[in-house]
Design a protein around this nucleic acid. Structure first.
Length: 892
RNA sequence: GGGAGCAUAGCUCAGCUGGGAGAGCGUCCGCCUCACACGCGGGAGGUCACGGGUUCGAGCCCCGUUGCGCCCACCA
């Protein structure tokens, strides 16, 4: 039965059909199998309510490439999928949805809210998963997990309790970042600094005289960007060695409006150079001031409610919104004559990375994870190379963070998430941390126990992802076999949120690191290099691209033309090129299959007799490609690897080999030759499809399965390996020489404006027997590829038209009798230019070869190579000179 | 303020350990050559940011300058 591909490449339908088949055949599913080595990757779980964006598409593509490649290499691969509950962002979206319905979250209550959230998760949670499938992701969907499912819940509780037992988790009062809109605390990593235009208000407080009266003449002046916080001032500070203020240290100033007397303290935190060298100290509303306050035992006066309105400590400003209060206070100070001036000032303001609300530093009781001990193994892992970061430059960022680690604030004042397993006794106030709700207070026996209202930071559960998804805290066979995982692929943006936390969590709980390699990739940007964002509306929907060009084209685009570590610009023209490539291989395959006779199937058959030089050349080139692609993939240089396949298929296989072989497919009485060519065509095509499969899984599957019947899927076929018996160096040189001659003839034809349909006779002259032999074997190619009507190879100029145009080749000269068409002046110019180029090359070669240091220092093969080059240049130089002589002869 | 990085063809970018400057897109010329016009063939276009240095030899190594974004910290 003759096999055929559809007439035109159309990814629509084809991709869905193939994916469905893969799923049905359970190729993605992995089971423990002690006879095979595992290769495990865990997906960075996308937000459960998210929709697929280019960042995901890139991330998943890279993972899928690695997983598919390893699977073909014979590993028992598991790509563990799942989604993240994404505490804050999910809660914000549900709250907004409620708001639109006129429902207040607080009025609804926790229980109803969570019901709603779960319903939401059920409704939208599948979207991202189905979108990942469109990309071709070979995840083991049977193992899909969710960071808030029952197993993850147990894991989270277990880890919390264990860390608490070891004293790593504590509840403490600290200045934390507070989002007044989301109404929750934030970790440092969730705060994003934005440059904002603001003002610097210069204010003065009157000094208290020795006799206790308020001075009307002496003031301390300072500047602030947040005047409203003065309500909570409990000191002003100066530098201890600042001569300007030495005399007032220890005295008091009057805090206006509030009329509180507050001390002048000396602290080295103050920068003498900045402003007046005086700082107001508000311990409850600034992290630095908090530290100063601790050192000087200053009271901490909290003046703000959780929604950033002023509380009762603000006196008459109580109830006012923070910015309204700022305005009012400035006006009042101005009226009192205490406002010195207002300057424009641009400074960085901390904002919540989810909602971009300006965060308010507040003192709060929160749960923290003590980091100083936990982080040590995470530092060691990278330092000692047990975990390799790709690219290596990621290490700097990594250590920058680990070296300046601060305790991790893990409590969030939200409802959607893992509730903190801590209970407070209503009678004695004792806090009990336990795996299950205690019946009575272990301290006083009280029966009134209330669970902590807060939930944990989303990243607390994702930090356990590599082992909780494999069954931990149970000691499952999966965990034993698939853990530790191998490679983690993720963007730069979550190196601190997630990667480091997985590393120390895994080491602490499992005693081993969660993976041996982390691959960081850049951001996908728009054509102008801007971040894709909803507000700019410049995002490109991967699904739209898939619909238009196919997932294969999208995947190829994402990994080509950029190294992975850096950001990339994404635009449709690049996808079009990928689609064109898909179309190219589709048509090349179609051509090959068209030429297969009934029941002909060369797949995995022994090399037949009668391979010609071109056949050996393409096999040899394919062989090199296999080696180069594999080497680059081992280095995770996916872009370089696939570029090699691309170049090989398009340039060498399609544009040269297929064209070279065509006459042998149609010719009479050359069955042996035809079969040899067909064997090479199918062998190289099948091999190339394998090399390409991790990158373009769908089209390669379709071609592979249509062409041969021995194997049911390319997914589970074996990765090509380099074979020494396919290494044909001599044939490679031979075909390269012929290609050069073909290009030479074509060039002359174009230059001379010879009609493409016009055939011309050619003669190749060389005194070297070996060279002549090479070109003799190329005679047919000159006819089929360069429009030669006939070709002769000979050792002298006998019978060569005096006025023929000539082309210099390596060790030979090619003559075309086109004298009547020659534009002598133009040809002279061309040859003179060529002569000049050769002069330059010769000079360089000469210089190197007479250089003793080069001869002594360089590798022997380099020197030999240079000698060969010089020889070639000398020959060509002589030929061009000869041509010029002939040309000048023609003129006369 | 600290750190790491980037500056290569009109545009977007490759170029691994130093030894003849590349791709895609665009552009120009010629082709509907029986797999493919989503194609084929042939061109044009670069003092590899600037200035020094090391080297027989530097886009690649070292120092400095300029320009551009990034990460971290954050000064009231």
């Amino acid at each position: 039965m003759k096999k055929e591909l559809a007439k035109a490449y159309d990814p629509k339908g084809l991709e869905d059909r193939i994916y469905k088949n893969w799923e049905e055949k359970k190729y993605f599913h992995a089971e423990v199998d002690e006879t095979k080595k595992p290769f495990t990757v865990v997906i960075p779980p996308p937000n459960v309510t998210g929709i697929l964006h280019m960042g995901h598409a890139f991330d998943e593509t890279v993972q899928d490439i690695l997983v598919r490649w390893k699977r073909m290499q014979g590993y028992n691969t598991l790509w563990q999928p799942g989604t993240d509950h994404a505490s804050i962002s999910t809660e914000v979206r549900i709250t907004n949805e409620l708001k639109e319905e006129g429902i207040d979250k607080q009025a609804l209550g926790r229980e109803k809210f969570l019901e709603r959230a779960w319903a939401w998760k059920e409704k939208y949670g599948g979207t991202i998963v189905s979108q990942l499938k469109k990309l071709g992701s070979s995840c083991d969907w049977e193992r899909e997990r969710f960071t808030m499912d029952e197993g993850c819940n147990r894991a989270v509780t277990e880890v919390f309790v264990r860390l608490h037992e070891k004293g790593y988790i504590y509840k403490g009062s600290r200045i934390i970042n507070w989002c007044p809109v989301c109404n929750t605390s934030l970790s440092d990593a969730e705060v994003e600094y934005e440059e904002q235009q603001g003002h610097l208000w210069h204010i003065k407080y009157p000094l208290i005289e020795e006799d206790g009266s308020v001075s009307t003449t002496r003031f301390v002046e300072f500047a602030t960007t947040r005047p409203e916080t003065m309500l909570g001032d409990t000191a002003v500070a100066v530098h201890p060695e600042d001569d300007r203020y030495r005399d007032i240290i220890g005295r008091e100033v009057l805090l206006p409006i509030v009329n509180r007397r507050i001390p002048v303290v000396a602290d080295t935190y103050v920068d003498r150079e900045f402003g007046t060298g005086v700082v107001k100290i508000t311990p409850a509303h600034d992290p630095n001031d908090f530290e100063v306050g601790k050192r000087h035992h200053l009271p901490e006066i909290n003046i703000m409610n959780d929604d950033a309105t002023i509380n009762e400590n603000g006196g008459k400003y109580a109830g006012m919104e923070r910015y309204a209060c700022r305005k009012a206070i400035v006006e009042e100070l101005d009226a009192m004559g205490l406002l010195v001036k207002i300057e424009d000032y641009s400074h960085n303001v901390g904002t919540h990375d989810r909602c971009h609300t300006t965060v308010e530093p507040l003192i709060k009781k929160q749960w923290f994870v003590k980091m100083d001990e936990l982080i040590k193994p995470a530092i060691r892992a990278v330092k000692e190379g047990e975990i390799r970061l790709v690219p290596k430059s990621a290490e700097k960022r990594y250590f920058n963070w680990t070296d300046n680690i601060r305790d991790w604030c893990i409590s969030r004042q939200l409802w959607w998430g893992h509730r903190i397993p801590a209970w407070t006794c209503a009678d004695c106030g004792e806090i009990t941390v336990a795996r299950t709700a205690p019946a009575v207070c272990p301290k006083c026996g009280g029966k009134q126990l209330a669970q902590d209202e807060d939930v944990l930071d989303t990243w607390f559960s994702s930090a356990l992802w590599p082992f909780e998804t494999l069954g931990w805290p149970d000691d499952t066979p999966d965990l034993k076999y698939f853990f530790p995982t191998d490679v983690l692929v993720t963007g730069w943006d979550i190196i601190f949120f997630w990667v480091i936390r997985m590393i120390f969590s895994s080491y602490e709980q499992m005693g081993t690191y969660p993976f041996h390699t982390v691959i960081f990739h850049g951001l996908v940007r728009d054509a102008q290099g801007r971040k894709m964002s909803k507000s700019l509306g410049n995002g490109i929907d991967p699904l739209e691209i898939i619909g238009q060009y196919g997932a294969d084209a999208l995947r190829l685009t994402l990994v080509t033309g950029n190294d992975m570590g850096s950001d990339m610009r994404f635009y449709k023209e690049r996808v079009e090129n990928s689609r064109n490539f898909a179309n190219k291989i589709w048509n090349a395959s179609r051509f090959i299959m068209m030429n297969l006779h009934e029941d002909e199937d060369y797949y995995n058959t022994a090399m037949p007799e009668g391979l010609e030089p071109a056949d050996k050349w393409i096999l040899s080139r394919f062989n090199s490609t296999v080696r180069e692609v594999t080497e680059n993939m081992e280095r995770y240089e996916l872009g370089i690897a696939v570029q090699k396949v691309y170049d090989f298929i398009w340039d060498e296989f399609c544009d040269w080999y297929i064209e070279m072989v065509k006459p042998r497919l149609y010719g009479e009485n050359m069955e042996t030759s035809r079969r040899a060519a067909m064997w090479c065509l199918t062998t190289v095509l099948a091999g190339s499809m394998k090399l390409l499969h991790p990158y373009m899984p769908f089209i390669t599957e379709e071609i592979f399965c249509t062409m041969q019947s021995a194997e049911e899927s390319i997914m589970i076929s074996s990765w090509p390996v380099y074979r020494t018996e396919w290494d044909f160096a001599a044939e490679e040189r031979q075909i390269e020489a012929i290609k050069e001659a073909v290009r030479g003839i074509r060039g002359i034809r174009t230059n001379m404006n010879v009609a493409p349909s016009k055939k011309v006779p050619i003669v190749i002259v060389s005194e070297d027997k070996e060279t002549l032999d090479i070109f003799t074997t190329g005679r047919l190619f000159f006819e089929s590829l360069a429009g030669a009507s006939s070709s002769r190879c000979q050792s002298d100029l006998s019978g060569v038209d005096e006025n023929a145009v000539s082309v210099p080749l390596a060790g030979a000269t090619l003559y075309i009798p086109l004298a009547e068409l020659v534009d002598t002046a133009a040809e002279t110019e061309r040859l003179t230019k060529e002569l000049k180029r050769l002069d330059g090359e010769l000079a360089r070669s000469e210089k190197m070869l007479t250089n003793e240091k080069f001869l002594a220092g360089a590798k022997p093969e380099k020197v030999e190579e240079e000698r060969e080059k010089k020889k070639k240049y000398e020959q060509m130089h002589a030929q061009v000179e000869e041509q010029l002589r002939r040309l000048s002869g023609m003129k006369q």
